[in-house]
Design a protein around this nucleic acid. Structure first.
Lengths: 212, 212
DNA sequence: CTCGGCTTGTTATTTTTTTCACAATATTGT
DNA sequence: ACAATATTGTGAAAAAAATAACAAGCCGAG
């Protein structure tokens, strides 16, 4: 395998997840070897883009043949850092948080929620979807003990910034934020925002433009 | 106001939502006029980027002064197509779908869910979060009647493609898809995917890289 | 009214990302 | 063994996007 190249496009990283999903699908269909075309067929990504993306990390295929599905899956997982189970904390067990607790899409990608927190005294101690809900006041204790560095934030928008700050102080370095607010955090903490309204606006904008 | 320029970067469109959110916040704080710096202070976007983005659509500010918050809000809403209420259908009232039905972040941006559908006979006819759940078999009828062209898809991954296809046939032109699958649809139908696992993978990748 | 401090809008430049073109390698059939 | 075909991997070119540089306009003080 060749050495890592210095600069890897942001977009390449984002697409690796897509490739992983596609590969898992091919594996389910008992396909052992697949070409770049097979892998990208149902993604909105060209096969050249795919090969270029992979080339930043090395050569994983065999010319004239394609890619070993299982092998490439493992390689991409290794690149993404999801080759071992990732332990994740969920903070905010409201309606959305509850739904996320029982989201079935995580295990397949080695993502595992291992702790759930809420501020509501009525919820604390209760079991929800198999998780015992802890008080937010125990954030530090549990996160340190479990060595968690990734969190899902699904608290109300009013408390999002405060809780996010608290998470950062406890050593959390990556936050998936569902609150519609741009979190201000030390720059060594990574944030990814899931903003439903914004996504819809984007769609509506495209819709509108397509009619002009 | 100058005429529209031909090509508008994808990214510009995406950022307009952010600006809108920031403007609404400033308005709440009784700020009538704001500079590009004020508006982008809490976004990860430079003030130059902001002005550049707006310049694709016209000049909305006053040199030496800044932007009228209310006015600019309206202008961006007009650009995005959310200046009037958008009627949206939600398909799939499982745990996630239910959470979305009561999501409070939509009205502020003129987004309104007006119909909810599910395939489960036990749910049909029931009221959930104020919505009467309709059978998916009535999709066409209701969507035509209400003139809906935007839908949120939160059905299980197995049925996502089928239901999406059905939506497209009913005249839906934009789908916000929560199922972890890349939908194949006529190319005049816009799809935006919300993929929680993928977002987490992206974060974990950054985390990993930052340590090297 | 004019100067100096601000802030916008825009053209030019640089950087980043995608696409193209093609060499290199494997496989299959004859 | 060799031609025909399939497919990867990668430098070079093109396209897209971000940043820099700066002209132009507004405001308030004197």
């Amino acid at each position: 395998m060749r050495p890592l190249k210095r600069y890897i496009p942001q977009e390449t990283a984002r697409r690796l997840s897509l490739y992983l999903r596609s590969l898992k699908m091919l594996d389910q269909k008992k396909k052992a070897v697949a070409s770049s075309g097979d892998i990208t067929r149902f993604l909105n990504v060209s096969s050249v883009q795919f090969r270029k993306d992979l080339s930043y990390f090395g050569g994983f295929g065999k010319r004239g043949v394609g890619y070993e599905v299982r092998l490439l899956t493992k390689e991409i997982e290794k690149i993404l850092g999801t080759d071992a189970v990732r332990r994740i904390a969920l903070v905010g067990v409201g309606k959305l948080g509850s739904a996320l607790l029982s989201y079935t899409g995580f295990p397949e990608f080695n993502l595992q929620i291992v702790a759930a927190f809420d501020a509501d005294p009525d919820k604390i101690g209760k079991i929800k979807r198999g998780f015992k809900i802890e008080s937010i006041s125990r954030l530090r204790e549990v996160i340190k003990k479990e060595g968690i560095e990734t969190a899902i934030l699904s608290v109300p928008v009013e408390s999002a910034q405060k809780v996010a700050h608290e998470l950062a102080k406890c050593g959390v370095r990556a936050i998936l934020n569902f609150a519609p607010v741009n979190l201000t955090l030390p720059k060594d903490v990574f944030v990814s925002n899931v903003d439903m309204a914004s996504e819809l606006e984007g769609l509506i904008y495209k819709l509108k433009r397509s009619k002009v």
